[in-house]
Structure formats: structure tokens, C-alpha cells
Design a protein around this nucleic acid. Structure first.
Lengths: 149, 149
DNA sequence: TTACAATATTTGTATGTACAAATGTATGTT
DNA sequence: AACATACATTTGTACATACAAATATTGTAA
């Protein structure tokens, strides 16, 4: 029997059910996103960094900006950016004003890839949220923020 | 500015907010659990496998049972169990009736570790769910199940 | 200006994860 | 019995992640 079924049928506290449900939902969302991005040879974290770079609107991002914006603490921004560069999706050069910093920029190729991915990711997200109406989505947001803070 | 704040302040669809909130909440729960388990030299996945083994109540679990019960698809049950064995938390031997299968069992040491961890993990979970009352927890469960199915 | 602390990033090492291919064992068909 | 097929697990390889230590640059105080 799968763990999902065990949780449903067995005597388990409401608290544990909620924690488990959050994990399960996030895992499912992440897995499908992963498979979408995989077709385009890019990992979830690489995709996130690319979007951060695009959000800079031409302004270069240095490593600590990237680290700050990434959701999961990633101790390895360097190697992540390395991958993007090897795929020609980003560039990196030393910042002239402060030579400790690096300036990371998204390339045209990176922007083009995001253009392709945007609608796919949007559809992926909507395929989940479609199941709830607006009121329910707001409720869910409130409950999640409450549980987190 | 951190991504959490950007999401709050900027114009972003309700759908994206929900997806992001699920990710953020799960990440936070996972990070604190990870740090608790780390003090006892065990990873989250190793902990999950140990609990599955305990749930067998003396009956050995073979690899495909473990794989089926694990939440995130883990292609590497073998190496995960290797770690548990090297820590003397589990044992493994070939199943005599069907020599393709392995019989994995939790040891006394493994059970003792879970005894220590149980209250810690419970407190960790409650530290989140405490913030919601029973009705809200049920609501959250319903919304998450709805979004997932 | 030298020395020391602070900042920004990189590197090393161990561990964890994903996927495909390989190995070993059992079952069914002729 | 011989063969193909299915099943259960392991191994190889590449990549990702966590954490600590190392490197390089800048700012500051004696």
C-alpha cells in the first residue's frame, strides 16, 4: 500500500495529515514542473535563476543577489551559474567597481528559452489551481501564510 | 529584496501566489526538519525509511515495498539502505523464499533512535499546525487534496 | 601603510538524487 | 531442458546539494 492510502485510512492526527498533505502537494507540483523543464534540458533551479536574471531587466545580478532570491538555500550558486553559461543562457564577468563581485546577465538565448517556457509553466500551474475557485484560492493562501508565520 | 517580499508587493496572479506559497511552506517545514535530524546524523529520507521499517512491526520489508512507500521517488533505495546499515540502524539479507528479494529490518538501535526522534518531530510539526485551529486544519486539508486530485 | 576584519565568491569533499543499463533470479512456454 | 520474459535489486554516471574552508578584494583603524 502506498503511503498516501495509509494516511487516508489509518488513525493519524489532523496535524500530521496537514504536514503530510503539504509535502505531497508540493512534491507533485515539483515533479510535473521538473518533467516539463527536463524536455528543455534545464533544471528547476536553473530555471529559477534564469527568471531572476530576466527580472533584472538588463541590470546585472551578482551572486549574492541570486542567493538571496532563490527559494531553497543554495550553497552553490557558482556551479549553477556555470551550467547556465555552458548552455549559453547567461554570461558572467567581474564587476569593475567592486572586483569581488560578479555580474551575471541573461543572454538573448536565455530570454528566448524563457519565452518558450512561460506558457508551459503557466499551464502547469493553472492545471492545479483550476480545481479551486477564487475564494478557495484566497483561503488557501491565507491558511498557508498563517501556518508559516 | 527577497522573493517572498516581491511576491507580496508585486502584481502577481492568485494562481501563482498559491503555487509559490505551497512551495515556500513545504521548504520551510523541510528545512527545520532537516536541521533537527541533522543533529542525530540522519537525513530526511533515511528517517522516512526507518519509520517505514518500524511500521512493518518485525516483518521484513523488501526494496520495492520501501520504494512504494517513499514519498519522493527515490531511484536509490539501495544506497539509502546502505547508509542505514553502516550506521547499524538496519540489517539486510537475501530472502530465502525468493532470492531476488532482500529483507530489510530495523535494528534495536534504529528503534531506539526513532524513540528519541518521535517527540522532536512531533513538536516540530505542531509548531506549525499550532497556528491553526481544528476547523482551519480540516479546511487546509480539503483544499490541498482538492488541488492535488 | 600595515594589519585586521568584512565582504563576495569559489573550491573541496561528502552526500544525495535521477536515470539508464547491468546483474541475478524466477516464471511461463514450447 | 532451453528460451524468452518478467521481476527485484544493484551499479555507473552525471548532476545537484550541503557545509566548511580557501581565496580574493575592499574597507577601516591604529
Amino acid at each position: 500500500m502506498k503511503i498516501e492510502e495509509i494516511v487516508k485510512t489509518q488513525n493519524i492526527t489532523l496535524s500530521k495529515k496537514v504536514i503530510f498533505n503539504i509535502l505531497l502537494t508540493q512534491t507533485k507540483i515539483a515533479e510535473t514542473l521538473h518533467s516539463i523543464l527536463k524536455e528543455h534540458d534545464i533544471s528547476t533551479e536553473q530555471f529559477n535563476v534564469l527568471r531572476i536574471l530576466r527580472g533584472q531587466k538588463g541590470k546585472p545580478a551578482n551572486m549574492c543577489v541570486l542567493q538571496e532570491r532563490m527559494i531553497a538555500k543554495t550553497s552553490n550558486t557558482t556551479r549553477l551559474v556555470d551550467k547556465l553559461i555552458s548552455k549559453e543562457l547567461a554570461t558572467r564577468q567581474v564587476c569593475e567597481e567592486n572586483r569581488r563581485k560578479m555580474e551575471v546577465l541573461i543572454t538573448e538565448k536565455g530570454l528566448a528559452l524563457l519565452e518558450i517556457l512561460d506558457p508551459l509553466v503557466l499551464a502547469h500551474e493553472d492545471s492545479f489551481t483550476d480545481k479551486l475557485n477564487e475564494k478557495e484560492l484566497e483561503e488557501l493562501n491565507e491558511l498557508l501564510e498563517k501556518i508559516r508565520n
